[in-house]
Amino acid sequence: MKRKCDFCDSEAVVHEITLAGGKKIEKHLCEMHAMEEGFEAEGGGASGFLTSKIVLAAGQKQPAGKPGKREGCSDCGTTFDEFRKTGLLGCSNCYEAFEEQLGPLLQRAHDGATHHVGKIPSRAGSSVDRQQRLTALRRQLSDAVEAEQYERAATLRDEIITTEQDAGLRRGTAASEGEV
């Protein structure tokens, strides 16, 4: 069963859970009301909400200008149309260049998956290690929210904050004290 928006009958796509003083505060919002409440969609545009069902206090980084369908990859010149025909990307950078278009495609091919989970090359270094861990945690959090396991979600969110602090990714006081 899909959860409805707190303000209207539309399906909620943004879920925020905070625990303050032992009290759980939930927000479930549709796309429109989420934007009104000041949530920013990941990657810009409404579809960003669909991939990120949970909004964290940490700011989402906005991807730099990506080439359109006509423009090719800056490293190897492969265009998205070319990829459509051959099914092959030209180089590592293609994944960045076509990140937006590839997202939904990959989700279809990989049973809804959006992010890598698993082994990391040893030479990728510890910063990648942490990014990886964050990715995994965010996924688990999103799953927990979907399953309405809010206690677990709160624990996971705690872990995410700690990991982000370790990585120095978290600036300022995005998460106020008492919020979990």
Binding site: S92, Y95, T114, H115, H116, G118, P121, R123, V128, Q131
Partner: peptide, 9 residues
Amino acid sequence: IAYSPRFGY
């Protein structure tokens, strides 16, 4: 090895 945190290998 070619790798990205989001897409993996």
